[in-house]
Simulated scan of single mutants.
Amino acid sequence: MLWLFSAVEELLPVLAFFVVQQSYSFEAGLVVMVLLVLALLAVSYGFGRAAPRFAVASTIALLIFSVPSIVTGNSTFFQISDTILDGLFAFLLLGSRALDFPVLKYLFGRVFAITDEAWRILSLRWGLLFVVLAVLNEFFRLGYSEEVWAYFKLFSTIFILLFGCYQFTLSARMRIPGESNRLGLRV
């Protein structure tokens, strides 16, 4: 059930941004998104759930890129954040794989009990995905309107969630028995 809350935490703010942005303005959608992310993080913390490192880092990144867009009314700061962050994630994941240092294991080792080979495969898969997303983000950011980019943002978020769900097939196959459930999640 925890995975469902995590999926809602990822999708709901982007969906709210999309709806408000389509109905009002880019900045209004961004304000709603930021407030919703902060509220969901507080709810998660309020339920006694330790905030995952990645959630805290992504919230800080959201604030760093969204506040300038809100204050200046220039959507570029927020739009380019996906290119910068996806590129950074790709560099870290592919670089950590090349150096045989599983950064994903550091970030998600409390959640998954899977083999080191699984961490290497996941690093490659996610690294390549983030390269593609960074390139596509620039394609839509530079070539299309804010409204079209917002559609891309929504669909790419949904795709990331579906891609993440698909990765459970790997974690299930390469789980550490006795430390994980059938999906590779720590027990």
Rank of each mutant, 00 (worst) to 15 (best):
A28M: 05
I121E: 14
L93G: 00
S75G: 09
R53Q: 14
S123M: 15
T72Q: 06
A61Q: 07
F18R: 00
F152E: 02
S6R: 14
F5A: 15
W149H: 14
Y45L: 15
V31F: 08
F155T: 03
L15T: 05
L40K: 08
Y106W: 15
L41F: 12
R175C: 03
Y166D: 06
V71T: 02
L41E: 13
S23I: 07
S123A: 11
L107I: 12
N137I: 03
G143T: 00
A51V: 15
I70K: 03
G29H: 04
L15H: 03
A172N: 11
L92T: 04
L4H: 14
S66K: 08
L92P: 14
Y151I: 10
F17V: 04
A7H: 14
G127S: 09
G73Q: 10
P177Y: 01
Q21V: 14
R125E: 15
L41G: 09
A150I: 06
L85V: 00
V37Y: 08
R175D: 07
D116V: 07
F77C: 11
L94V: 00
K105H: 09
V32G: 02
F155P: 02
V103K: 13
L142F: 14
K153H: 15
L11I: 09
V67L: 13
R53C: 12
L129N: 07
Q79K: 11
I80E: 14
V8E: 10
S156F: 05
S96K: 01
G178P: 02
V67N: 10
L99A: 13
Y166G: 15
V8P: 02
S58W: 13
L154R: 03
L2Q: 12
V19L: 13
L107N: 05
F155L: 14
P68W: 09
A150H: 10
N74G: 15
G164L: 12
L107P: 04
V8D: 04
S23Q: 12
S6V: 11
T115W: 06
Y106L: 13
R49N: 03
A134C: 06
V31K: 13
G109I: 05
I64F: 11
V19M: 07
A28V: 05
L170E: 03
E179H: 03
L15D: 00
R141P: 03
F112K: 01
V67C: 10
G178D: 09
Y166A: 12
G48W: 01
L136T: 07
A172R: 02
S156N: 08
T169H: 08
W126K: 08
T157L: 06
